[in-house]
């Protein structure tokens, strides 16, 4: 008897919640300080009538939601995102468990988390990088959103196509190292095509936003996304591995090698 879907899903939800909490902590410690620096710039524009000059501004004069509520709301949002990603992760993991590389459920969970991070977080972040407040031009948000979504879907497509190619190659007799090398070439080629042919953001960073603020924000954003995926993969894998050890079934049936990455 294998693993039931319910036990996989429960662990996905729990791991997702923990991943969301980890992301919320990173937002609070790393992202919020950078957002505060950006809001100072927005405020300065407000004082100098920047809105008239066509610079990106936030809402009107009266804030709809206080800063404190935005900080709390951001943390709650991070947890909701974590749980939703955890659910998707659990379903995909259950479907692909027998095909994922890695020894043991822990290894497989880390592999899937790494692929998820690369496909739906890192690739869009490289093509349409995150921006702090005071940068985005509201009139281009539709186009930027479209490009972001296209890049994300292409990332998922690469994550589907390359393993399919790998199975193809496995059909012919070929040394594993050769196949591995061809897989890597395929990833580099496809990512290169996406980077070259999907148009970049139409926005220009306004002159009053320092370059190091933008860099710090993008780094902070990636740190937060990495924290989310890493926590998800680690906790999901640990929870599943422990479940397997407790039930003592497929751990033994596995390829044998203990988890040593």
């Amino acid at each position: 008897m294998g693993l039931s879907f319910g036990s996989v899903l429960r662990r996905g939800v729990l791991a997702g919640m923990l991943a969301g909490l980890a992301a919320a902590v990173v937002i609070w410690l790393v992202v919020e300080p950078v957002i505060r620096r950006a809001l100072v710039i927005e405020d300065r524009r407000g004082m100098h009538g920047g809105q008239a000059a066509g610079l990106p501004m936030h809402g009107g004069e009266e804030p709809l939601v206080s800063r404190a509520a935005q900080v709390v709301g951001g943390a709650v949002t991070a947890v909701i995102v974590g749980v939703a990603v955890g659910v998707v992760f659990a379903v995909v993991f259950a479907r692909l468990r027998d095909r994922l590389p890695g020894s043991g459920d822990f290894g497989r969970a880390l592999v899937l988390a790494a692929i998820g991070f690369a496909a739906v977080s890192l690739l869009p972040a490289l093509k349409i990088p995150a921006n702090p407040p005071a940068v985005g031009d509201p009139s281009t948000v539709g186009r930027r959103t479209m490009l972001y979504a296209v890049t994300l879907l292409l990332g998922v497509a690469i994550a589907v196509v390359v393993p399919a190619l790998d199975r193809r190659l496995a059909g012919r007799v070929m040394a594993p190292s050769t196949r591995w090398a061809l897989d890597v070439v395929a990833v580099v080629l496809l990512v290169g095509l996406v980077m070259a042919f999907v148009p970049g953001t139409p926005d220009q960073v306004p002159a009053d936003v320092p370059a190091d603020l933008v860099w710090d924000f993008r780094l902070a954003s990636l740190a937060q996304l990495a924290a989310l995926w890493l926590t998800l993969g680690l906790t999901f894998g640990l929870l599943l591995e422990r479940a397997g050890a407790a039930r003592n079934d497929d751990v033994r049936a596995d390829t044998g090698a203990p988890v040593s990455a």
Partner: peptide, 20 residues
């Protein structure tokens, strides 16, 4: 939608989705 946008604002920026 405006209310939702403002409440989720910081996380949207942090997640890197185009926000405004």
């Amino acid at each position: 939608a405006q209310m939702l946008h403002e409440l989720t604002h910081d996380a949207r920026h942090a997640l890197g989705v185009p926000c405004h």
